[in-house]
Write a protein that binds this DNA or RNA. Structure first.
Lengths: 205, 205, 205, 205
DNA sequence: GACTAACCGAGACGGTACGTCCCGTCTTAAG
DNA sequence: CTTAAGACGGGACGTACCGTCTCGGTTAGTC
């Protein structure tokens, strides 16, 4: 983020000569603590100590520990957003969900839950979390639905943002509330349900 | 809580009863701070100071500040769960949602968001939150659906728990993620969508 | 102290019907904690718990934990004040000192040190400690000197209080300051020194 | 303390130097509380509040409040150890005692009593108190006696440590036990008594 | 090649809140 | 109507982190 300006004008070269080594050490330390001791144990002081870095260095580049964790999580782990293309919306949606669920079922789920929780207390981080994390996933899902429209599997005037809410809402609800698992059955139910409510023939039949 | 055993043998009520005065002062103080300064300002020390109570007294009866806030919130505020009965599932569902949304749009929404966030960090509180708060609301919604089945508006073999997820999921998602409002339009969209996916086939057959 | 009134008039029988059992249990508990964990671990709460007694019961009969310890120490342990009678002041003094030193060398020394320390912080206890403990020992020593005067080993106009200070002062100094031991050598040095400064023939010779 | 190594290799002065400002503020605050409210009112929290300093800063540099008070007392107050040189041991000793007594008769006496009391409960502090405070005074007195030996007023083989005990013992005893005052009369009695017991035999032979 | 400005590690700093320990008083129920 | 049991308001403890700051030292252009 702070580097995105460097390849543009580059008229003030002495500014922000960050140490890439320290940068990576910080992200790695955050991940290590996260995996070994959980989000609660992640503190700026612990990260600094583990990374062999001054606290100032962390504060220089990130506004909060949640932001560090978010970057560590998105950059250092290969948490790619799935974008299946199986030929049918039903199949794509199911695979998208089952892939997402599988990722969330392991430690990743706990990290994501912690980040969403942190977002409730820290509005600035909330905004960043939405932009960086949530929206990327919403757009992938939107892309799936758009393909469905192109194939005629979905009405062209469907409210895609709303459909995305109908998919991600129940997923997050189960993730955060833990009253029921994010399993294959749920992936089937959820994709079937949303498609059954949106199939063009049924809706206007 | 400690009185629930009294109708049995009454041989071990040696548990000293709590001071009702202190109890209420604590809940009120928690609410006051919550409303005036937000959840972040709620600390055990602040509650104790405002309630004119020793910290130990709070720790004696509640395991965490989240638990105090939950009790203050559920007991002292009239946050009744809506249970409309308008004659049709569609109307009941819409009114249920619009009533819920209206409550969540004011400060209550922030409290609820904070509690859900806290539940992510504190498993014990998470369990209590689910049982005390979430489940009560799930059951009310389930009751609505059951009436719909009785009226023939819903298939008798509908998976009600899943339907509840499809209603509460998107609501919580918007509440926590704040990418879109919990307004009347969403109440309409959501109730219509769920009903359109669940209308008994023989009605449209 | 509070019993000293009971065998006098006894016209108000229902007042102060202290439980002798509780009384002894408290003293014993104080001693037990003292010996097993040291003076620092002696608290009213610990005594009450160990004695199976309410805290109120302790506060009813003693003003402070130091007072409890003092009574436990003087009443329940057989810490008799030595009063040797060997026929000469020199012998009596040495035996008195060596006996006292021997007692102070074991745990008793620590208790006595703690009580003297407590007396510095709590003036009321300080007074009681002086009257109950210190003065009894000063009087014993004074008695020794008086016998010395009768035998002609000491001038009749000797300032006995001052002589007592010259004996007990160095003893307490070593006890509290711990820079040198309270051993037999010191008992000899001390008694010899005081006698050499007070022998009638040398002084006026 | 951390500067004492600087004249050597200067390769490991990585210990961050303490803030002299905070250091002095803490000592001053301790003294202020001590003089205005007594030793009992001296708490780490009170010192921190009065000095405008975090509690951690105090704990970083001192192990206990007694240590803070000791440093405040020895460094910030001009409690010089008297070292008279009047030409005779008798005069020097009397002036030494009367000067010491005068200092102990005011608030200083209470501080010193409190420190000695604290030393009974806290062995580590006891050691520091002995080394820092007690020993400095013992050495001054020893110096007096050594001059007496040089002048021929004292036998060359006198046990000076024992003589110091015979002077300081009674002083401390009266200071702590408060059964009699530290007045000029006692200064005379004490110095006379010790000298009368130690006069070289060949002088009176 | 020396200068110099920024970064860097280390961690001290003022500060807030934590959860615990005891204090001395007060309340309850049980005998 | 006195107990034991322990809850109560309160004060201080020593700890954990916060976010800011102050040090030397290191390093990377620029002069």
């Amino acid at each position: 983020m702070e580097q995105s300006l460097q390849h543009t004008i580059q008229k003030t070269p002495l500014v922000q000569r960050r140490s890439e080594q320290a940068h990576q050490a910080i992200l790695q330390a955050a991940l290590d603590i996260l995996e070994s001791s959980g989000y609660r144990a992640v503190t700026i002081e612990a990260i600094a100590a583990k990374a062999g870095v001054g606290k100032k260095t962390i504060y220089r580049w990130w506004p909060s520990k949640a932001t560090v964790v978010l970057e560590a999580f998105t950059v250092r782990t290969a948490t790619v957003v799935p974008l299946p293309n199986e030929g049918s919306l039903r199949a794509d949606l199911y695979i998208f969900l089952e892939t997402s669920f599988r990722i969330l079922r392991d430690v990743t789920g706990n990290i994501v839950r912690s980040l969403m929780a942190e977002a409730q207390f820290d509005p600035a981080f909330g905004e960043e979390f939405r932009v960086t994390f949530i929206n990327a996933r919403r757009e992938a899902l939107t892309e799936l639905f758009k393909r469905g429209i192109q194939r005629g599997e979905l009405r062209a005037d469907s409210n895609l943002d709303f459909l995305v809410d109908m998919i991600y809402g129940p997923m997050w609800y189960r993730l955060l509330n833990r009253h029921a698992p994010l399993d294959e059955a749920f992936a089937h139910q959820l994709s079937d349900f949303v498609l059954s409510a949106t199939q063009p023939t049924h809706r206007n039949g």
